[in-house]
């Protein structure tokens, strides 16, 4: 089980828990004290990260998360970049 955290400038904490199987991210679960409308969009974020190789860059992850969101989804207190940083930290063990 891998675990990464990133605290945004506004103070919200983004946490990502996942497994690594065959050098790929799986069982991704993003959590934290942020706000997200609609709530169901959390699954879109998890799925966007699923399957990337451990070598993936923060920028590519952030773009993938942004692209996966339906129009009208609002991330409040966090961002695709914040999630991507938390994922990278989890992979890198920092």
């Amino acid at each position: 089980m891998y675990h990464g955290e990133y605290k945004t400038v506004g103070g919200k904490l983004v946490i990502v828990d996942f497994d690594i199987v065959n050098d790929q991210l799986t069982n991704v679960s993003v959590s934290g004290d942020f706000f997200l409308e609609p709530a169901e969009a959390l699954e879109q974020i998890n799925r966007a990260i699923e399957g990337f190789p451990v070598a993936v860059s923060q920028e590519i992850l952030a773009t993938a998360i942004l692209d996966a969101l339906d129009p009208g989804v609002e991330m409040i207190g966090f961002s695709p970049e914040a999630v991507a940083i938390a994922v990278r930290r989890g992979i890198d063990g920092v």
Binding site: I15, D17, S29, V30, S31, G32, D33, F34, A39
Partner: peptide, 9 residues
């Protein structure tokens, strides 16, 4: 807990 928080964390 907030809607998006995990119990174990």
């Amino acid at each position: 807990l907030g809607r998006f928080q995990s119990v174990r964390n």
